[in-house]
């Protein structure tokens, strides 16, 4: 049996439900006026500094969503790039958005055009500045590296999902002296970004970026809900460690939680009061 439906793994289904509830309740809280705190993320504070440096030098800004296929990661990356574009539009700094996924490219064109419109500078939008290079990993990497070198970019923003090509982007940007800010959910690429970039945004800080930049109540509330869910995970882990240490890993309750077997097993355990 594989986990294709909630019924195959009731534990996961309940966890998903709880996370969704935590997020929605805190969004409601935020919309009702609760003041929510978010800690400082240095990499995001540096975005304006990077754009300012580009403007002074008169060299372009590059934005790279990587090889992210269209999904939540790509939407988050484009949200960040939209914010950056609005800042860029104020100073008329040249920009290039280089995409490795055609669907992301199509959405990015609209997003960047919207950003210029919202900043009141629709005249600055040039569709040729949003480019699809290739969906082949290293063809894309060579296209991006070549552009960074030729145009001597001054600021390089890399947000999204990256693979082996990440170091090629980051090191090429370093060669031309660009200030680089990277944010990725790809755990394996974080060390490369840390080594080659000025600022790196790791893991779920990436998802916190839109809340941090916009301070919108919905996004802040969602962030608090995520943190509550993370707390639940931590407490569950701690509880599991303590329970397994006391009762042993063969105890019925540990087996029930550790080996989900569908709704039947769950209801049986609840009705029988302790597991099978």
């Amino acid at each position: 049996m594989s986990y294709q439906h909630a019924q195959d793994n009731w534990f996961s289904a309940i966890i998903i439900g709880f996370i969704a509830l935590a997020v929605l309740m805190n969004i409601l809280r935020a919309q009702l006026g609760a003041q929510l705190y978010i800690r400082r993320i240095p990499g995001l504070d540096a975005i304006d500094e990077a754009i300012g440096r580009s403007t002074e030098l008169g060299r372009p800004v590059t934005m790279i969503p990587g090889l992210t296929s269209f999904g939540v990661v790509a939407v988050q990356a484009l949200t960040i790039f939209k914010y950056i574009t609005k800042q860029i539009a104020r100073f008329a700094t040249p920009m290039r958005l280089l995409s490795g996924d055609p669907t992301v490219f199509a959405v990015a064109q609209e997003a960047i055009a919207d950003a210029y419109n919202e900043a009141g500078r629709p005249d600055l939008y040039d569709p040729d500045n949003v480019r699809f290079l290739s969906d082949r990993q290293f063809a894309f990497a060579s296209g991006v590296a070549g552009l960074i070198q030729r145009e001597r970019v001054a600021a390089n923003f890399m947000f999204g999902e990256f693979f082996a090509e990440s170091l090629i982007f980051a090191e090429t940007g370093n060669m031309v002296g660009a200030i680089q800010i990277a944010g990725t959910v790809s755990f394996t690429q974080v060390p490369f970004f840390v080594a080659a970039c000025d600022y790196t945004i790791i893991g779920d800080e990436f998802y916190a970026t839109s809340a941090y930049l916009s301070r919108e109540p919905v996004l802040l509330g969602s962030l608090v809900g995520q943190d509550i869910a993370k707390l639940l995970f931590a407490l569950t882990t701690l509880g599991g460690v303590i329970a397994a240490s006391i009762a042993g890993t063969d105890a019925p309750i540990i087996k029930l939680l550790g080996q989900p077997g569908g709704w039947e097993a769950f209801w049986k355990s609840v009705l029988q009061g302790g597991g099978q």
Binding site: S2, F187, T188
Partner: peptide
């Protein structure tokens, strides 16, 4: 594989199936 495809096998393949992994060194850490 050189990319992160093993979570798909873990999530969706039958549980009686043994999964073995041959990644590149970069992907091994995760």
């Amino acid at each position: 594989t050189p990319s992160g495809t093993v979570p798909a096998w873990i999530s969706y393949s039958p549980k009686n199936l043994t999964i073995l992994y041959c990644p590149t060194s970069v992907m091994a850490a995760e």
